[in-house]
């Protein structure tokens, strides 16, 4: 894909989350311009690629693993990425996404798709990917190399981590940069 073979292949993925972590990524502002010189963004909501590509160097994964589709994608990510980063609280802890874990799936779907204000009806359920019994933090589904907590992780954290990785250094976050929430 990329003409410059030296560029790092970066992917981002959006599982069960609100996309806030991706928004925070966009908040990198001018750093994005610097970044884009060093990396190719090869997959994710920010670019238009249908399939998760091979040979990804770094993948930032937002969101908890909450349905079968998430799980399949998580596995593809693991198989094809060198470094997988749990990106934001939903991926790291399950966070808000996992607040449904106490509720039986059946009750949950009934409440959302049948009793909610705009009923969608049973038919549409057939196209929804099946929910897992519990929304899982990413590392309980696949092996994770680095944790970047925060809801969302602020741009400073993202910059610190990504810069270190691009420079081939070990990522060291100061305590105040690794708080949940």
């Amino acid at each position: 894909m990329s003409q410059n073979s030296k560029k790092v292949r970066l992917a981002t993925a959006w599982l069960g989350g609100c996309s806030g972590c991706h928004m925070s990524f966009l908040d990198l502002d001018e750093l994005l311009i610097e970044l884009i010189e060093k990396v190719d963004i090869v997959y994710g909501p920010l670019v238009d690629h249908k399939e998760f590509p091979e040979d990804v160097d770094i993948c930032l994964v937002e969101g908890a693993v909450t349905n079968v589709e998430n799980l399949e994608l998580a596995r593809q990510i693991r198989t094809n990425s060198k470094i997988v980063i749990s990106f934001g609280d939903c991926a790291v802890t399950g966070n808000v996404t996992s607040m449904r874990n106490r509720i039986p799936i059946k009750d949950l779907l009934t409440a959302v798709y049948h009793e909610a204000q705009a009923p969608i009806g049973a038919e549409s359920l057939k196209v929804l990917p099946a929910l897992l019994k519990k929304a899982l933090p990413l590392h309980q589904a696949i092996k994770v190399d680095l944790y970047l907590p925060g809801c969302p992780p602020d741009p400073e954290r993202i910059a610190t981590a990504v810069t270190a990785l691009l420079e081939g250094r070990e990522v060291e976050l100061a305590p105040q940069m690794r708080t949940f929430g």
């Binding site: 802890t93 590392h139 305590p175 105040q176 708080t179 929430g181």
Partner: peptide, 26 residues
């Protein structure tokens, strides 16, 4: 769920996890 807690950023448990490097729960 730290993100939606009244004590977010002012919580001793949250701070301890960050200070001791507890970054995920197995």
């Amino acid at each position: 769920t730290c993100a939606v807690c009244v004590s977010n950023q002012h919580c001793e448990l949250q701070t301890l996890a960050a200070e001791l490097g507890m970054d995920h729960v197995r």
